[in-house]
Design a binder for these strands. Sequence first.
DNA 1: GTAGGGTTAG
Length: 352
Amino acid sequence: MGMYAALGKMEITHKLFDEMPERDVVSWNGLISSYAGHGSFDDAITVFKRMSKESNLKPDESTIVSTLSACSALKNLEVGEGIHRYVVVTEFEMSVKIGNALVDMFCKCGRIDEGRELFERSPVKDVVLWTAMMNGYVQFNRFDEALELFRCMQTDGIRPDNFVLVSLLKGCAQTGALEQGKWIHGYIDENRVTVDRVVGTALVDMYAKCGCIESALEVFYETKERDTASWTSLIYGLTMNGMSGRAMDLYYEMESVGVRLDDITFVAVLTACNHCGFVEEGRRVFYSMTKVHKIQPKAEHYSCLIDLLSRAGLLEEAEEVIDEMRNESDESLVPLYCSLLSAAHTFVRMGI
DNA sequence: GTAGGGTTAG
């Protein structure tokens, strides 16, 4: 079972699990943590619930941590709180890992202040705990508190690692805090922090969102490790800084170099087309999603295309595109009709 | 166990 789980063959793993004559904590945990590890968070939680119902076994540390991580990812506060109660009631040994996972779960579910309470009560505060707490503040637009926490962390003698720096850079990008962002960049250089693809992307994004597109370009070209997200953040950044032509160049370069494109890349590229009114190119890009890249366009892609067509005055074509998505729910069609109508409205106002 | 990239309209 372990072997299949490691290979990600979850169907076989689950089947073997069901066929087992007896199951101990280790086998339940094996199934839960491999589901969580492969991103099947729903399944992880389902199995956890089944374990509580069907067996008299008590979950161990690793089962609790895996399930909590699934709760974090799915923002499932109900199950997360249940586990918290279980830990309190049974006086389960609150290990560092469990404490960290609980704080992370509360923060991701938006219960920042509850997370902070647990954070304060935690006798051991490692860098993971500090990061989880800082992420919570950043995620919910409380960047000041994240910065304050960062200062406390340094006073406590904890060295910031990549995770901490990325979290802060994201906060800078969100709030346009260029000076803080530059300071972090300086810290990275001075302390020889490895600029991996995640740090690189966070820097590019921070500079672009703070309006320093030149610095964003510089970081991008200096960073050796680049992936889909790095390219996408620059494409989007160029667009937001009024350089959509250059964003398109980057997109063509990305294709020719052979970097994988994903759905977010296409949102960025279609947005670039929209900004400079490249109808022909936008159409081509949109249809290449399915034909070349085997990516199923989502509502946001249709939305970009419809917007592009409507603004160009091609209202009938835009309507045809909406008709193409008839199989979608009515709810998801609403924003599409909105862009169509708003474009139509503009034309009416202009007397066209 | 903790990090990065997401359209549009009003």
